[in-house]
Design a protein around this nucleic acid. Structure first.
Lengths: 162, 162
DNA sequence: GATGAAATAGCTACAGA
DNA sequence: TCTGTAGCTATTTCATC
């Protein structure tokens, strides 16, 4: 769940990194193609991919959809400021965040705000309804500050493999 | 590029949405499995997937990696405040952002700040070097405010298909 | 890590609604 | 125009070296 936990580093060699680099760009690439790109046999590539999946280095394999073509043209970012950030007092809000599919990302952050949300919405009306569900009855919410994303220069979770 | 452009809505029926819902959770699901889940034949599923890919509803198909297991345990969010947000004055910074693999996301937003960045880093030293490259010689940067992500409750680009 | 056989998945063509 | 059936091709998978 918490992507920031200190997980023991798995031993990855240059072959693994090369394979990962291909898969995180396009995981429909066939093992044979990968094999000749990294100069390995297809079964060797397959064993490495299986290990990377089982060890959790590959977290999941997914299709990335175009939200705007699926009726959700809006992206909003929200800074949430709490009165009290103790776990017991924030449990409810965390549960509501997890239960809302429209909330794509949520980070607990240092600094002025306590949480940063990235949200997709079909309309401002839908977004307002969401904020009401999220923050409406929670007296631990001090305030929240919404920004509308006008442009999206980059959107992804691509990890640099140096 | 700009995921927020108003693209003409593609006609998607319930079958398409059901297929997309499966693929954005796990795109390694075989066409046969999808076929029996949505009550269609495998070739019908394949034709629909091909159309969804070609029309851009499926933007890409990727493996999502665990950044912390790849030597990048830090997630940082940065609010960038500019003096002047005119395209000519921001072109350089936008280019630098696009060129930095460590910058995972960048939104141009309304409100106090002009840009919101989500960045992955291996260390604070690496992050500081990045900010120097990004903001160092640019006198259009008024200020930037960094937050460290302590927890990551949600991280993804999963689009709700209602 | 490589080779080769078996199983599985993906693709194309054709016929029908 | 779309679906489903059939058959082929390619890929993945597994056992063996």
């Amino acid at each position: 769940m918490t992507q920031l936990s200190l997980t023991p580093a798995v031993a990855l060699d240059a072959f693994d990194l090369a394979i990962l680099d291909i898969l995180q760009r396009d995981n429909t690439t066939s093992q044979r193609e990968i094999a000749q790109a990294v100069h390995l046999s297809a079964p060797a590539v397959q064993r490495r991919i299986r290990r990377l999946r089982e060890s959790g280095v590959i977290r999941k394999e997914v299709a990335v959809l175009d939200a705007s073509r699926l009726g959700r043209p809006l992206i909003l970012t929200v800074e949430v400021h709490l009165h009290d950030e103790h776990p017991q007092r924030t449990a409810g809000m965390r549960a509501r965040i997890m239960a809302e599919p429209a909330i794509q990302q949520c980070y607990g952050i240092t600094g002025e705000a306590d949480y940063l949300l990235v949200i997709t919405a079909s309309s401002m009306a839908e977004y307002e309804a969401l904020t009401e569900r999220l923050f409406g009855g929670d007296d631990n919410i001090r305030r929240y500050r919404t920004s509308v994303a006008l442009t999206c220069l980059k959107m992804g979770l691509h990890v640099p493999l140096t």
